[in-house]
């Protein structure tokens, strides 16, 4: 058998080759704690790729996350980052954005953190069209706390707090974001890495409330409890059952248990952001006495 490892340290050292994601990670914290087969690391890869392609000044990018498995992304990324209390990633990011209007603030968190504990903040940040990019890694469960029912758990699967199967109607996150007024709404799975990286790149350049949902397997709690196989089996399910439908009506993109997943870019529109609205309104009310805030040092 051919047992020669492909790792060629000489070649790698000689030409200074490095994994393209490594400059974006805090090396001392690798290896990370995510389970084998978890897709969060893949979304981090896509995000790093998007950051490389965007050519942004990394000093002007901040990443904020809440609590949970996905909340650890802020700790692993070598950017300005903050790990907030549970559900409060968006309020913190709002404050960060308003204090530093030139900064691109990315909220990177899980479905439980963003839409259950922080659901109210999510709704209102989308309503105000706060200039944030929200990446929601949706794994249908609360991973870190032990597999409780999350607001995105579809009807059917068993969870620790629903041992006979979940009967609660789940959130349709793209519809929620669209209805609240997000300017960019997309959903991709961890299987669609290239498309996810492209969506993240578009989101980095988009002004306003950007919402990107990345479906990710949870092999340890969701899949194993429901006998759905390993992380790679979930990726194969995404491959088989996902349908790319760009511009689809977000009303119709809800997810049934192991059913069809509609992926794509659903919404891309323009609305004045919160700061733009404020400047315009106070400009009208106060006239010359008002100095517009945060319009000169935007990162373009």
């Amino acid at each position: 058998m051919n047992e020669l490892p492909s790792f060629d340290a000489n070649l790698e050292q000689e030409f200074g080759l490095i994994n393209p994601v490594m400059p974006y990670l805090r090396q001392d914290r690798i290896p990370h704690i995510w389970c084998p087969g978890c897709g969060i690391g893949t979304t981090v890869n896509c995000f790093a790729r998007a950051l490389t392609d965007s050519g942004m000044d990394l000093d002007k990018v901040a990443i904020v996350s809440g609590i949970g498995c996905t909340g650890r992304v802020a700790g692993y990324m070598n950017l300005d980052s903050f790990h907030t209390t549970h559900g409060r990633a968006i309020p913190f990011a709002t404050g960060l954005k308003l204090a530093n209007p030139g900064m691109k603030v990315v909220v990177y968190s899980g479905d439980g953190d963003l839409t259950a504990i922080g659901g109210n903040h999510f709704v209102h940040a989308a309503r105000r069209n706060m200039d944030l990019m929200v990446v929601c890694v949706n794994n249908f469960t609360y991973g870190m706390t032990g597999g409780q029912v999350a607001p995105t758990t579809p009807v059917g699967p068993s969870q620790t707090t629903m041992p006979y199967g979940n009967f609660e109607n789940p959130f349709n996150l793209p519809f929620l974001a669209d209805a609240c007024g997000a300017v960019y709404v997309a959903r991709w799975t961890v299987y669609h890495v290239k498309q996810l990286a492209k969506a993240l790149l578009e989101g980095l350049h988009k002004k306003g409330f950007v919402f990107i949902e990345a479906m990710s397997p949870c092999p340890t709690l969701y899949s194993r409890r429901n006998r759905l196989g390993d992380g790679v089996d979930q990726l194969k399910y995404y491959k088989e059952k996902s349908v790319i439908r760009n511009g689809a009506d977000t009303k119709e993109v809800g997810i049934a248990y192991q059913g069809e997943i509609v992926v794509g870019k659903f919404v891309d529109r323009d609305r004045p952001t919160w700061l733009d609205s404020m400047n315009e309104h106070y400009g009208k009310v106060f006239g010359d006495r008002f100095t517009p805030y945060g319009v000169t040092d935007g990162q373009e």
Binding site: L17, N19, P20, V21, M22, L25, I30, P31, H32, W34, P36, G37, C38, G39, I40, G41, T42, V44, N45, C46, R49, V193, K194, A197
Partner: peptide, 15 residues
């Protein structure tokens, strides 16, 4: 480098 894009543990990359 599709393996590098998929790898959740940042352990592999292609050149």
């Amino acid at each position: 480098d599709l393996c590098g894009l998929y790898c959740p543990d940042f352990a592999i990359y292609g050149v």
